[in-house]
């Protein structure tokens, strides 16, 4: 429902009493309202929807999710080896419970 895109905060300022910032989306720079992310700092990434930053991207969780995907590749190779040795496949779901 909601087109929201990650961008990196380049600068922060006050305008009409509202916390605003310049946010860079892969080379496209726009003014974004940062009022809802009082803790966000220059260099951080945020999800932006209709000109408002609504969520700071948690780098640790992002890394964790990507690690999960990478393990899937290793797991698939293991599964392929297991199948070759004719052993039953093991479900992968238990290995990837949500990050805290």
């Amino acid at each position: 429902m909601c087109l929201a895109v990650p961008g990196q905060v380049e600068s922060i300022r006050d305008e009409h009493g509202i916390r605003m910032g310049r946010v860079n989306f892969g080379g496209v720079v726009k003014d974004v309202c940062l009022a809802y992310l009082p803790e966000i700092a220059v260099g951080d990434y945020a999800i932006v929807h209709v000109g408002f930053a609504i969520s700071k991207i948690d780098e640790a969780s992002a890394q964790e999710t990507l690690r999960t995907f990478a393990e899937l590749g290793i797991l698939e190779e293991e599964l392929a080896e297991l199948r070759e040795s004719d052993e039953p496949a093991r479900p992968a779901a238990d290995k990837t419970e949500p990050a805290p």
């Binding site: 087109l3 895109v5 961008g7 989306f25 892969g26 080379g27 496209v28 726009k30 932006v48």
Partner: peptide
């Protein structure tokens, strides 16, 4: 180009 792709991304 990457920057055009970004522009398309933010405007949908």
């Amino acid at each position: 180009s990457p920057v055009v792709a970004s522009g398309c991304e933010i405007l949908g």
